[in-house]
């Protein structure tokens, strides 16, 4: 049926100043390259969409628009930018720099009124919320500030609230799975997919073609964010799409 959207493979580029970085479980961040070069490489690769997430902007309270302007220059593909966004003005500036959507995490958690206002002002299609979580005593708990701060919120309670506010999509990253390249958090993602109406982008854990295929098959989630897999293996977004297409999934032409 037509409601069956095409699978989106979304590489995410985490960065800090000019460095593209990768971590494991949101720790031990390693510099894997220059953010401008990484972006240039992706923009030549016929990518469905890109996510840029500044892991330091919340802490430093500064969104570096100059760098963003530079790396979005040659991206003729959809771009979502996140990190440190806390005002309507921030969003305005990012859209002017070439972002199609912005991604809120810490500010959406701390100030749901801000999230509601942002959705009202820019339209839900423009606002993405990302949620990072980690199992604490087997209960998924929400973390903010790039995983640095543990909140008291249960993921399932929090996501319900966000779902009601209605952003265009919710990015879910399991900190326990992130960077481990051993597969996604299928158990929780499957439950969450059934619980909410907002479209989910699954993030954290892809290490092989099968990991991504299993995620889609088991959870029905059609939007896949990944990072380490494209950096530490031979797999590229295009070979991944070919693999999924050969498995009979609906991929962009």
């Amino acid at each position: 049926m037509i409601s069956d959207k095409k699978i989106r493979i979304i590489p995410s580029i985490l960065y800090n100043k000019l460095n593209a970085i990768r971590g494991k479980n949101f720790e031990g961040w390693r510099v894997i390259g220059n953010v401008l070069q990484t972006t240039r490489l992706y923009s030549k690769r016929n990518i469905d969409e890109l996510f840029f997430l500044d892991t330091e902007a919340t802490r430093s309270q500064k969104i570096n628009l100059e760098i963003i302007k530079e790396f979005t220059k040659d991206c003729f593909m959809p771009i979502t930018i996140g990190g440190g966004i806390k005002s309507i003005e921030d969003i305005d500036n990012l859209l002017k720099m070439g972002a199609d959507r912005v991604c809120l995490n810490t500010s959406a958690f701390n100030d749901s009124e801000f999230l509601a206002n942002a959705i009202k002002k820019f339209g839900s299609q423009c606002i993405v919320v990302s949620i990072d979580y980690k199992n604490i005593d087997k209960i998924p708990i929400v973390f903010i500030d790039s995983g640095r701060i543990q909140t008291k919120k249960n993921l399932f309670d929090y996501i319900k609230k966000i779902d009601e506010l209605g952003p265009s999509e919710i990015v879910l990253t399991s900190i326990d799975h992130d960077g481990m390249m051993k597969g996604y958090d299928i158990k929780n993602l499957k439950l969450l997919k059934k619980k909410i109406q907002t479209s989910i982008i699954a993030s954290g854990g892809a290490g092989s073609y099968e990991d991504v295929y299993n995620l889609i098959k088991e959870t029905g989630i059609q939007n896949i964010s990944a990072s380490s897999i494209f950096h530490f293996t031979e797999i590229t977004p295009n070979t991944l799409k070919r693999y999924l297409s050969d498995k009979g999934l609906n991929i962009r032409k």
Binding site: D74, F76, D92, L95, K96, G98, A99, D100, C126
Partner: peptide, 10 residues
């Protein structure tokens, strides 16, 4: 309205 940098570049 938003989204102008990319259309200008294009």
């Amino acid at each position: 309205v938003g989204n102008v940098n990319s259309i200008i570049r294009a």
